[in-house]
Write a protein that binds this DNA or RNA. Structure first.
Length: 445
DNA sequence: GCATGATCATGC
DNA sequence: GCATGATCATGC
């Protein structure tokens, strides 16, 4: 491929320096002549490749700048509604997973690592209502995975590849892994591919860095926010992050909450006291493990549950309330609920009641909603919910008796805590709840 | 005892 | 002041 460029394409630093010329400009300003010709077709990354960096886009296994080993990635971030903080707007989609080939690779020789070990990140600020060519490009810099992250990414890659080797490519989900995910990539859910160890067709998927991981990268390396996240976990060698978390917690099996409170010098009657204990069990210097570097990047949520003397869960599990006016505008595929269950991992910490009506730490489980439950049973409840809200029946949403997995119930400060309905009225805030019988199966599996 | 409605309380 | 995780309360 011939390039007519005015920078040294064999040098990562030279490429980065050339890319710095983008900073402070919008896409339109960077390539005015191209924009006129092509109108606004093509994605922003492709446009920059062609009209700024001067090469034709390819889908090679090699990085975009092969001589320098640099892969170009153009990615948006946004300002959060409250406060001044920023987050990545999207996951960062890397190369498509070739199910047939990936099972023959090891991480170190993988096409994933070959292509993505050194990334030139070009960040632009997405803004509501702005035409996409007018988004300002604010940063352009080289990014390499920090050593601790690379270890976790390598383990994630292995989890994904092992699932393909087990003939379960059709069951892959982003929530299976911590930093590196297998996200869907294709025109729609009919973009299916064959897999080597099963006759089931699987959705086309790509390796991607989770949105939560990209938010951390943005704040830590791009915006240089000094308030970075603290590490929860020591350097990992033999163990995976999952193993470390579970082994660390499960060492406390059988210890009562009274005893744990004494061990960690915690005197609290708050509802969150079990969550506080769980965080201390992981790392004595943490009040909330969710705030750690690792949990933030992997989007791991801590959930505590109590199992009663009768072996049943005390309560169902709640999730954030939805807005009636927003949920009716969604389709299942791009719904907030689906996105949440697809991308979030849950560290479920179970306390079990003993004969003295005292709660004892039983076990911790890392769980994410299986894609087959999500796209069948949860989907049905979600669709029924949306249907009833559209019909003006926001006061009659799916009850527990209507599904084995989840239902809808109030979730506000009190019944006067309301959200507007599409019809112009108001209804008590509600959310989706996971049925406790379903959850019991999860922790006992 | 359970389903469903209602509310508490922390932390941002 | 509100969102959210967690729990309580009521009535069948």
């Amino acid at each position: 491929m011939e390039r007519k460029v005015e920078y040294d394409v064999t040098s990562p630093e030279a490429i980065e320096q050339y890319a710095q010329g983008l900073v402070g400009k919008s896409f339109r300003e960077v390539m005015p002549e191209a924009v006129e010709n092509v109108a606004s077709k093509g994605n922003l990354g492709t446009l920059l490749e062609e009209h700024y960096f001067g090469y034709s886009p390819n889908s090679n296994a090699a990085p975009d700048f092969p001589e320098a080993g640099v892969e170009l990635k153009v990615t948006p971030y946004k300002k959060l509604k409250r406060g001044k903080r920023y987050s990545a707007k999207e996951r960062l989609v890397l190369n498509v997973i070739n199910y047939e080939e990936v099972v023959k690779e090891t991480f170190d020789t993988s096409s994933f690592y070959h292509k993505n070990q050194l990334i030139l990140l070009v960040n632009y600020l997405w803004q509501e209502g702005l035409e996409r060519l007018d988004y300002p490009i604010t940063h352009a810099q080289l990014f390499q995975f920090p050593e601790e992250d690379l270890k976790i990414i390598k383990d994630d890659w292995n989890v994904i590849v092992d699932k393909v080797k087990a003939g379960q490519a059709h069951l892959l989900s982003e929530g299976d892994t911590n930093y590196l995910g297998a996200c869907t990539k294709g025109a729609n859910r009919y973009s299916l591919r064959e897999q080597p160890y099963s006759d089931e067709l699987a959705m086309q998927r790509a390796f991607s860095l989770k949105g939560s991981y990209m938010t951390a990268v943005l704040n830590e390396y791009i915006l240089n926010d000094i308030k970075t996240y603290r590490k929860l976990v020591p350097a990992l060698h033999e163990q995976t992050l999952d193993q470390w978390i579970l082994e660390k917690m499960n060492a406390f099996h059988g210890i009562s909450t009274t005893e744990l409170a004494r061990m960690f010098e915690l005197d609290s009657k708050a509802k969150s006291r079990y969550a506080l204990l769980a965080s201390r069990m992981l790392n004595g210097s943490f009040d909330n493990a969710e705030k750690s570097d690792e949990f933030q990047k992997a989007k791991i949520k801590l959930k505590t549950i109590r199992v009663g003397k009768n072996g049943k869960l005390k309560q169902e599990m709640s999730f954030p309330a939805f807005k009636y006016t927003e949920i009716v505008e969604e389709t299942w595929e791009e719904s907030e609920l689906r996105e949440m269950f697809e991308t979030t991992r849950y560290l479920i910490v179970a306390f079990r009641e003993n004969e003295h009506e005292e709660f004892v730490f039983d076990k911790a489980v890392l769980w994410n909603m299986p894609i087959q439950d999500l796209d069948t049973q949860v989907r049905a409840v979600w669709e029924e919910t949306v249907l009833r809200i559209r019909e003006g029946r926001a006061d009659q949403l799916p009850k527990k008796s209507e599904s084995n997995v989840c239902h809808v119930r109030p979730h506000g400060r009190n019944k006067a805590d309301v959200y507007p309905t599409p019809q112009g009225g108001y209804e008590t805030k509600k959310c989706f709840w996971l049925n406790k019988e379903y959850l019991l199966d999860v922790i006992e599996a």
